Computed example of a mutant assay.
Amino acid sequence: MTFSLVARCAETGMFGVAISSSSPAVAARCAYARAGVGAVASQNVTDPRLGPLALDVMGRGMSAEEAIAEVQRSGRHIEYRQVLAIDAQGRVAIHSGPNSLGIWTQAEGRDVASGGNLLANDGVPAAIVAGFEAAKGHLGDLGDRLIAAMRAGLAAGGEAGPVHSAGMMIVDDVPWPVADLRCDWIDEGCPVEAVARAWEVYKPQLRDYVMRALDPTRAPSYGVPGDE
Rank of each mutant, 00 (worst) to 15 (best):
167 G>S: 14
52 P>I: 12
127 A>H: 13
44 N>Y: 02
66 E>I: 00
22 S>C: 12
19 I>L: 08
128 I>L: 11
108 E>D: 10
197 R>D: 11
205 Q>E: 15
153 G>A: 09
143 G>W: 10
98 P>R: 04
194 A>I: 05
173 D>A: 14
43 Q>D: 04
163 V>I: 15
2 T>D: 12
140 G>P: 07
49 R>Q: 13
155 A>R: 08
64 A>R: 06
207 R>Q: 15
31 A>E: 13
91 R>M: 05
122 D>Y: 03
88 A>Y: 05
109 G>L: 04
160 A>I: 09
90 G>K: 06
83 V>E: 09
223 G>L: 08
179 A>F: 10
205 Q>V: 09
96 S>T: 15
146 L>R: 01
24 P>I: 11
49 R>G: 14
56 D>Q: 11
93 A>S: 15
174 V>C: 07
25 A>K: 02
121 N>Y: 06
205 Q>F: 07
49 R>P: 02
66 E>Q: 14
58 M>V: 04
112 V>Y: 01
228 E>H: 14
87 D>M: 06
76 R>A: 13
160 A>D: 04
167 G>Y: 12
101 L>M: 05
76 R>D: 12
115 G>H: 01
75 G>H: 07
56 D>A: 15
198 A>P: 04
97 G>Y: 00
6 V>M: 06
69 A>S: 13
20 S>M: 01
